[in-house]
Nucleic acid binder design. Structure first.
Lengths: 115, 115
DNA sequence: ATATCTTATCGTAAAGATACGATAAAGAGA
DNA sequence: TCTCTTTATCGTATCTTTACGATAAGATAT
């Protein structure tokens, strides 16, 4: 028995749901906030294992959360010697904001439009 | 062993994650879209079991999805005789949009602000 | 080469999510 | 009253998520 029937839904709906899923854990929200206050235009290094220190989670768990954010493209990762540095992908983030905003906007205008 | 340590995160982060979780399934996205195009200012009845006909899911499953949306306050339900009618809670939806927008906006301004 | 540090991945355990059939409860209609 | 309709809930199966310890892989330093 199938657990999710994503094939039967609109592509845009699936995409939006995937994005929402990526944000559906406080740790990942916190990771994004941490990265935003860290890796910056001035060239200061992106965080790597420092994220682990900020979160109340084990290193392995944080690594999993980072992977999930990376999989949807919300963050990028680069290797710097023995450590990994992560940065927010501002482009994807802006796209996510637009998607979400458009979705709600359409809900509202569709509603007003009904006769 | 704990599955989620939500107690250890910021309240706002947990709240945003809960909202995202509610949107993290294409069926629930589709439900919101359906409701928006249906229950309207002109007094036309909100949808009830018609949602089941729109979705590729069994009645019991749709009921579960509706419950999840209701639990976070994104929709309201009223009983009309033998059937249940659901409507979007526009207030909560607007709040959700604001929360999400503020979150991303803060990420961006925090980033610019770093020296 | 050896030891050390950092991080991703593996293995595992438990809770949650998703899906459905069956059933119960409650109103409407015969 | 009895039946039919409608929907929520129960029971159940299965996949996913979350979490952690242990380990592997890669770079650096001694």
């Amino acid at each position: 028995m199938p657990i999710t029937k994503t094939e039967e839904f609109r592509k845009a709906d699936v995409k939006l749901a995937e994005l929402a899923q990526a944000l559906a854990h406080p740790a990942r929200i916190a990771i994004l906030r941490t990265l935003a206050g860290w890796c910056s235009p001035n060239g200061s290094q992106c965080v790597c294992g420092d994220i682990v220190e900020v979160l109340p989670l084990a290193q392995a768990t944080v690594s999993q959360h980072l992977k999930k954010l990376k999989d949807v493209g919300l963050i990028d990762g680069t290797i710097d010697g023995p450590r990994s540095c992560y940065c927010i992908n501002w482009e994807t983030l802006a796209k996510a904001e637009a998607m979400f905003g458009n979705f709600i906007g359409n809900l509202q205008s569709n509603n007003k439009g009904t006769t």
